[in-house]
Simulated scan of single mutants.
Amino acid sequence: MKKVIAIDGPSGAGKSTIAREVAKTLGFLYLDTGALYRAIGYYFFKKYSNCNVSAITDQEIEEQLKQINIEYEDGRVFLSRKDISTEIRAPEIGYITSVLSAKKVVRDFLLPVQRRFAEKYDIVAEGRDMTTVVFPDAWKKFYLDASAKIRAIRRFEQLKISNINTTFEEALQDVMNRDIRDSSRENAPLTRTKDAFYIDTSNRSKEEVISIILKKVAEDD
């Protein structure tokens, strides 16, 4: 395995933005694992638009996963060669993704996909279980956090930029619901490991957080 900088944390903590910039500075590959899960969520949303995704059996999910072709390049995700990087950020995709990502069959499907990147490249990988499950032996580990209100504001602004209609109240509710699902799920729940360096990003600028991470990365093991 090459050098892996693993970053975990709840939705809206700034993981994607920070990880992307850290990777760029270090010349590492940026791996947005959440985008991979959202691509699966997007697929099921399109295929089962009128169905409660939680009612789909694991066997059926496993069969559908065999039909999915996900590609990832330069921070963008493709499903059957279609760039869906913007579509996967919609709130409804976030909900379906959260439900599906709690299922072992889905996590088992993406685990080797994620690990293969580290076989070829030095990477900055961010998600919910990078430090605990996917890369437990990562070179450097970080946990980014922020208050629910701050994370909802960030989420709301992100959706507006992407021209996705929502309200701040909906963004806040989405963040809080996602926190509950991510931390309470049976398979690979969101957890802060003892060896992950904790950073509260609530009152810190992007530049400050990046600087903290780069300084920690530069330290000797």
Rank of each mutant, 00 (worst) to 15 (best):
Y42L: 11
I123F: 02
E21F: 10
P91W: 03
F78T: 06
R185N: 03
D74W: 02
F28L: 07
S183F: 04
R192F: 05
I70H: 02
S183G: 03
L144K: 13
E169S: 12
N52D: 14
E62C: 12
L159N: 06
Y48F: 15
T201N: 00
S49W: 13
A55G: 01
T17M: 12
E92Q: 15
S98L: 00
L65I: 07
V217I: 15
S49D: 13
A19V: 09
K120M: 10
K215P: 08
K215N: 14
A171V: 01
A6V: 05
N203L: 15
E92C: 11
V22Q: 06
K3L: 12
A138G: 11
Y42E: 03
K104V: 07
D179W: 07
D145P: 01
F135E: 06
R178P: 00
K120N: 14
F78V: 08
R181S: 09
I199W: 03
D182I: 02
D179L: 07
A13K: 01
A90E: 08
S80E: 12
K149N: 11
N177E: 11
A196V: 00
G9Y: 09
I61A: 02
K82M: 11
E207K: 15
D195M: 06
E186M: 12
G127T: 09
D108K: 09
F45P: 00
R116I: 07
I161E: 15
R151S: 07
Q64F: 04
E208Q: 15
S16A: 12
L29E: 12
V22G: 09
K160S: 12
N203P: 02
D220F: 14
E62S: 14
L100M: 05
P136V: 10
W139D: 11
N203S: 13
A146F: 00
Q114V: 10
L31A: 07
I56P: 01
T25F: 10
A102C: 02
A152L: 03
A118Y: 00
D83S: 07
F44V: 05
L36D: 00
S205F: 09
G12P: 04
I93D: 02
L31E: 05
A19M: 11
E186V: 14
A90L: 04
N50A: 13
Y121T: 01
V105I: 14
E126Y: 11
S49H: 14
G127N: 11
S184T: 15
E119S: 07
V113R: 11
I180E: 09
S54P: 00
P112S: 09
A125D: 06
I213F: 08
N187G: 00
E208Y: 08
K194M: 07
Y30S: 08
D179Q: 02
A39Q: 06
L111G: 01
E169W: 04
P189Q: 05
I5S: 06
R155A: 06
D58G: 08
R178Y: 06
R81L: 14
T132E: 05
G127H: 10
D108Q: 10
K15V: 06
R151V: 09
E63N: 14
Q114G: 04
N52H: 12
F28P: 08
